[in-house]
Design a protein around this nucleic acid. Structure first.
Lengths: 350, 350
DNA sequence: CAACGGAGGTAAAACATTTTACTAGATGGC
DNA sequence: GCCATCTAGTAAAATGTTTTACCTCCGTTG
């Protein structure tokens, strides 16, 4: 009863104009409408407390003004700061441009049924942002030829050029190398990410190793151990490194979580992280600053990555009309070293 | 061209039946349709690779099969584990029942323009889950009388009975009190949450204080200091407590972040957290287990809270049809003490 | 004075569904 | 043989917009 939601027709009747007129005003296609009519219609809207239905609007326009954020099926994915930061950035950019955000998880069933495509066809969503892509997500190829609005956030694939926005992982690796060498370290270990699965892990390690080599201190393969980006795997990798070279004075971990795992390992070996063994992390998650000692790390600014990806996606969507040169979007954001207290020059053996 | 997305009409034509028939099959209103027709239509769908448009469906049904998650406008809200865990739980429950999740942030403008209501009226969304409500969000009253599908997640308001699902904060406080008393502590301090702003903070403190009193060790007001749920405020509160009573042997912090802040403060006072001063936190965020020493805390299971809230919301929405006794939903989930290494009996002064 | 053009609109088709009320024909009971 | 009921379906209205093509004045031009 009270719920007789008013529609555009009611507004038209109330203000004595046609549907078309109301619609034009709603869409700010002002040119054709006189100021007096405009005012009349606007106050009718006010009076009827009219709000246009997004659903109905999307039908003729085939636009939902909504973007999907797709994440892989990991345990409690949204509780991860990495995803969380990126999503915050995406939200910010989307909200500023009037878009909404839909959350989607790429479970096995989801992928098998190609729901990600349905999402677009179905007009639920105007574009997709994929976070946390790995080699496992080869089905993304489907987006290769077709010019569907998809952006890979903070990763990319070598084989197919899909639109993407990433941090400069190569530069990050080089930066870490320079920093440790400049401090005087020569016995260095590296806990790398799962490089066969994610390109950025490979780039980081590549950047680190080649800079070390360039500066005349190449790292033996033995001193590179892989972890799965989790605290525990970081600890295990560090155990391994310490066993392979007990003289170790510095470690570069491919992410902060593994760096914190290294802290644990080092303590268990009765050494002091940050004093006897220097650690550089990567990502600059909030916990890094709270660790003891506060972790020196490379800041990736995931919020920025999310926001930038989102803006690129929106531009793609809105530009689609005047279908100009469809170049692959490939952007690389800068990184920075954040110096805290987990590094110092190597201690000379007494 | 290739994009001539097929619709229900095409399917009807292809299989030689009416629109209605196709629609009925789509909605599994099987009873009226013969198996042979059904098969014919299904294969026509297959052949045309037809997917129904969510948008168009929502229009007549006034159902979007989408839920909104509304969070307050905090810096990078989605990067917070607290929100993240809850959202993960919500997602899980929603996905299992075929609902999608829309993210919304209640910025000032958003609230002023009552977008949260628009969301519902507009049929973008069938219900709303509000996380992180405080006394600041008094506009939620609007949901009081009307029976709009809104659930307050892990908080509630005393004045109006809005539907909500919360952890049992009173029990949590009591549990902490028992634990510390049983260990032998008598010089206890409490870092409470912003109790004038959030009811659950008040309940936790109330539970803690009254159990202490019951057991014969009432806590003086001086030994309760308020923090804003952040690491830094926890540290400051702890500084204050240590100054007010240097004999302090145990602290109960209203959340883990403040407990970690207390670690910092204690260290700066040259005392050992977990040995000289025992700490109990609350929430059991992932960092708690990684802290040094690992933090003893009360697990709230936010994932569960999210999932349960979401299920309740969905039931509300789906039951709406047979509008039975509209009772306010008010659920209280159990909590548990997770013993780690941040507590021990008080040390006898040498 | 006829033709033109612009200002300010409007009618109607299109978008893709659901749902209500109806029907034609077959079956069954008495 | 007639009415009632059931089966398998259909026609048409409803949902709330956008958009295209058109219309009607009215003031200018040539």
């Amino acid at each position: 009863m009270a719920n007789a939601r008013s529609n555009i027709r009611d507004v038209a009747r109330e203000s004595g104009v046609s549907l078309t007129t109301v619609s034009l005003i709603l869409n700010n296609n002002d040119e054709r409408i006189s100021e007096s009519t405009r005012q009349r219609v606007l106050s009718a809207m006010e009076k009827l407390s009219y709000t246009p239905s997004r659903l109905a609007r999307g039908l003729p326009t085939r636009r939902a003004n909504t973007l999907a954020v797709l994440v892989p099926a990991l345990q409690h994915a949204f509780a991860d700061v990495y995803f969380g930061e990126i999503i915050s950035g995406i939200y910010e950019a989307a909200a500023n441009r009037g878009y909404r955000i839909l959350l989607e998880v790429a479970r096995r069933e989801y992928v098998r049924r190609k729901e990600y495509l349905t999402l677009l066809e179905d007009c639920s969503v105007d574009g997709i942002l994929f976070i946390g892509a790995t080699e496992e997500h080869r089905w993304l190829t489907e987006f290769h030829e077709t010019d569907k609005p998809l952006i890979i956030v903070n990763n990319h694939f070598k084989q197919w050029d899909l639109h993407h926005v990433v941090c400069d992982y190569t530069a990050a690796g080089a930066l870490a190398a320079d920093y440790l060498i400049d401090l005087g370290h020569r016995n260095i270990g590296h806990i790398c990410g799962p490089s066969s699965m994610v390109v950025t892990a490979e780039e980081l390690t590549e950047g680190f190793l080649s800079r070390l080599a360039e500066r005349g201190f190449p790292l033996s393969d033995r001193m590179v151990v892989e972890g799965q980006y989790l605290v525990e795997t970081g600890k295990l990798a560090c155990d391994e490194l310490l066993q392979r070279n007990p003289q170790l004075t510095a470690i570069f971990a491919a992410n902060d979580k593994m760096a914190l795992g290294a802290y644990q390992s080092i303590r268990q070996h009765d050494r002091q992280p940050g004093k006897e063994i220097s650690i550089v992390g990567c990502d600059d998650i909030p916990t890094a600053a709270l660790a003891d000692p506060p972790l020196t790390t490379i800041r990736m600014n995931f919020f920025e990555i999310g926001a930038e990806s989102c803006q690129q996606l929106i531009s793609m969507i809105e530009k689609k009309a005047d279908d100009n040169g469809r170049k692959t979007i490939s952007e690389r954001l800068p990184i920075a070293l954040i110096e805290r207290e987990s590094c110092c020059p190597p201690q000379v053996p007494a």
